[in-house]
Design a protein around this nucleic acid. Sequence first.
DNA 1: CCGCAAATGAAGCCTTGGCAACATTTCTGT
DNA 2: ACAGAAATGTTGCCAAGGCTTCATTTGCGG
Lengths: 154, 154
Amino acid sequence: MQQDRADEGEATVEPERFNQARAAQSMAVLEDYVEMIGDLISEFGEARITDIAQRMGVTHPTATKAVSRLKREGLAVSRPYRGVFLTEAGAELAERVRMRHRTLVDFLVAVGVPAETAELDAEGMEHHVSDATLRAFETYLERARASDGPDFQD
Amino acid sequence: MQQDRADEGEATVEPERFNQARAAQSMAVLEDYVEMIGDLISEFGEARITDIAQRMGVTHPTATKAVSRLKREGLAVSRPYRGVFLTEAGAELAERVRMRHRTLVDFLVAVGVPAETAELDAEGMEHHVSDATLRAFETYLERARASDGPDFQD
DNA sequence: CCGCAAATGAAGCCTTGGCAACATTTCTGT
DNA sequence: ACAGAAATGTTGCCAAGGCTTCATTTGCGG
Ligand SMILES: [Mn+2]
Ligand SMILES: [Mn+2]
Ligand SMILES: [Mn+2]
Ligand SMILES: [Mn+2]
């Protein structure tokens, strides 16, 4: 054999964190679309491809393709030339994603990130925040609110 | 024309945050590889495709393709059947990425995220942490270290 | 110095997420 | 009622990041 270099240190388990990040990334688009579709349904009663595309900042064929994937994964339903709707699973995911997004933004602001920046960064970060980390953020927020006490605006 | 729905609220600027997230994502792979290659060069004096692939948790053709992109973007250099090295730009990026990674993990742990989890989540989150947010994290850490004062273990 | 395993390269396939261009359907306004 | 614009669908292109399979080169050990 040639070189070895393999079993040097903890290099054996290391790759796992990249796999985790890749897995999270593969969910990111689904999560963003499902949340957005939920928003549109709340506002207008349905989510049209055009509106989805506009809000996501993509062209309509791109939005169509994403919706196809959502349907394939059982998160959305739609019929030709009609609006897009969420399945129960889709609605649940949307709700979880929305809460996580909100918690993350609140948390970032609480630790001193400018609101504008927090919103921008959160859009990408959120998809990599695990449940354990989210709980830590929530705990932090509760404590901060408790100690900042009186002068806290809902 | 048909429906309008366009100029309802802030929907016009909203897509920008998704574009930002997509831009960050397109850098993510470069950043991870460049950091990893830097590590390997520190340890062994060169970064071999096999070692890169193993640590990233991918097959060697995937690593080769990534290195091709790094070369194309002026971040790395290599000759056939020889190791991969970083350009000046590559080394600088690696250093920034390494610091950001470290700061993020430290910060997460400081706010109560379990170390193991922090490491996993950071691998994905890091690529979406802007300079402004990173500064906020650093400031937070400095203050935390100052108040936790004496009993702080290097 | 030479054989053979390891490392690297090369080709080709797949999926995803972008895009533009063109076809078809809906629906609004007159 | 119907013309024309808007919305949607369809097709085909591209790049990135995975993979498997096979070819080639390297370099160690004997
Ligand atoms: Mn997002
Ligand atoms: Mn979001
Ligand atoms: Mn990373
Ligand atoms: Mn990293």
